[in-house]
Design a protein around this nucleic acid. Structure first.
Lengths: 193, 193
DNA sequence: CGAGAAATTCTAGCAGCGCTAGCGAATCTG
DNA sequence: CAGATTCGCTAGCGCTGCTAGAATTTCTCG
């Protein structure tokens, strides 16, 4: 029994090793550099070992994405709770969100750009994902007026942040005006505050 | 001279054939199905012919993207000019934009999601791209208040539409509430109209 | 302790990818 | 019609994700 648990623990550790290596490699050289061969050599195992942990390359990306959601949630919470009023909280959270996307592009892509078969807008979605969305909701909710559905409003605001983050990072929007676009967005969503 | 022009015309026709085939293939089976071998067989030439027209696979995607921009501009113009007032124009254009992304996902990805080395936010950007952005601007501009920079406001609104389109299409936002999210967005950007 | 069973990891390989060198055929020039 | 030039082809390189089956290690039990 103890042997079984030890082996299971070692297996879990190796799985974490793989996810960490994949993430590190993606962050430093982009997802195109994360090949199964390269990743296998990085963790000092052979290729097929990866497939005993994950269904395929995409499943590894999904695991990295879930990790990223947890960190995004943490970053958003820190920004939100440090602000002194509701509008300040929304501004700080928005800044934290787009900073996260800019500074960890590979992680962000795995989470929100790359096609990945994670359940999202359902209860079965990973807890970390719900946490990140809840942080958004806590900052956006206070801006709701009269009949606004808070969840729908949060989804809409999230989409705006996501659009700004992705279009700016791919140079489809000039980066130097990012702050002013963010201010415009906040201005329109928090006009009554 | 006439021989030269004839050959140039034939070359241009073949190039268009490639772009059209690439687009068709991408729309029906996704970009992952657009391999150089498959595309070559589709146009009934050998692989290396593609490389005499385009630098590589990405350049073919870029050509498809430019075509897509032209069609998006057309769709946006039709929606905008058919509306009877400014707010209606913004609503119609927004709907047309997200419809375009939903109905032509591969085309939309080539234009705005896939990393592609097209000049975007510069004067050297393809004319079709400027046309599409101008359509957005013409609909958004009337919503600007006092000191708002119309271009920045357009960029911000575009980002919001882009975020809604991409997150909805990848099932990261529940599709059935798309209309209500769009209404919320318009409500916040056109609050004074 | 040591042989058989079971679990695990590795080697080797498949089919397909983007891309290119270099040869043969078709076309144009004088 | 011969020589030069352009053109498109065949063949191949190094890579990809993924997997079958052999080989090795680990555990079980007489």
């Amino acid at each position: 029994m103890t042997i079984r648990t030890r082996r299971e623990r070692e297996r879990a550790e190796r799985e974490q090793l793989i996810v960490t290596a994949a993430r590190k490699l993606a962050e430093s050289e982009g997802w195109s550099a994360v090949t199964t061969r390269r990743l296998a050599s990085e963790v000092e195992y052979s290729q097929p070992v990866l497939y005993s942990h994950f269904k395929g390359r995409d499943a590894i990306m999904a695991a990295v994405a879930v990790e990223g959601c947890g960190e995004l949630a943490t970053a958003l919470r820190a920004a939100r709770t440090a602000a002194k009023d509701e509008r300040g909280a929304l501004a700080a959270l928005s800044r934290a969100y787009t900073d996260f996307a800019r500074e960890r592009p590979a992680l962000y892509d795995a989470m929100f750009t790359h096609a990945v078969d994670l359940p999202f807008a359902t209860p079965e979605a990973p807890a970390a994902l719900h946490e990140a969305f809840d942080e958004l909701r806590l900052a956006v909710e206070p801006m709701a007026v009269d009949g606004d559905d808070p969840v729908l409003l949060t989804e809409t605001y999230w989409a705006s942040l996501h659009g700004l983050a992705t279009l700016t990072r791919s140079d489809r929007l000039p980066p130097e005006a990012h702050d002013r676009r963010l201010a415009l967005l906040i201005g329109h969503f928090a006009s009554t505050h």
